[in-house]
């Protein structure tokens, strides 16, 4: 299977982090992976996105121009990428922050109030993990066990106590 996922949102939402967890998990499963962030002059609050590819074949370009899977966590990201989603692709929308609907009807869309869910459950800042949980569930990208291994790798030593709550957030998205 070849998954090309574009995570997009504001800087500070953990967009790049969500991508990292996924590629680490993929690598530990022995699959081909690549992760490429956007970068720009703004350090905070600007738009951020990252291209994640998980594949069984060697990966050529790490750039995703037209995503098969879009994870949009703010309105500018949806506005920017909606038209680029491949036909019969997927869109995962944080419906707390994006109040409009996806206009394309050739794209399978999931609305997840991830930011609200994170807030309600004392998981501030973990909407990204909730979104990730939903993505792996719907697409069967990989199982929870791999995600856990990925999280262990990505969470730095000094924030180790954050592992449990991150896992809980992924699970919450998975079960949504």
């Amino acid at each position: 299977m070849n998954h090309e996922i574009l995570f997009a949102g504001f800087g500070g939402q953990g967009i790049l982090f969500a991508g990292k967890v996924l590629v680490y998990a993929g690598m530990l499963e022995g699959r081909q992976v690549s992760w490429l962030p956007s970068y720009g002059p703004e350090m905070r609050g600007g738009t951020a996105n990252c291209s994640v590819i998980i594949s069984d074949d060697p990966i050529g370009s790490p750039i995703i121009n037209d995503p098969a899977i879009l994870v949009a966590m703010n309105l500018p990201s949806l506005d920017k990428f909606e038209d680029l989603i491949q036909k019969d692709g997927y869109a995962f929308i944080d419906s707390t922050l994006i109040t409009r609907k996806v206009e394309r009807n050739d794209v399978k869309t999931f609305y997840i109030p991830a930011t609200q869910m994170a807030q309600d459950n004392g998981m501030k800042g973990l909407a990204n993990m909730i979104m990730l949980g939903k993505v792996i569930r719907e697409l069967g990208v990989m199982d929870m066990e791999s995600i856990k291994k990925g999280l262990v790798k990505v969470i730095p030593e000094r924030k180790k106590d954050m592992l449990e709550v991150n896992l809980k957030a992924v699970q919450m998205g998975y079960d949504f």
Partner: peptide, 10 residues
Amino acid sequence: DGILGQMMEP
């Protein structure tokens, strides 16, 4: 280049 510099792969 900026792509190789910024991208992660195993």
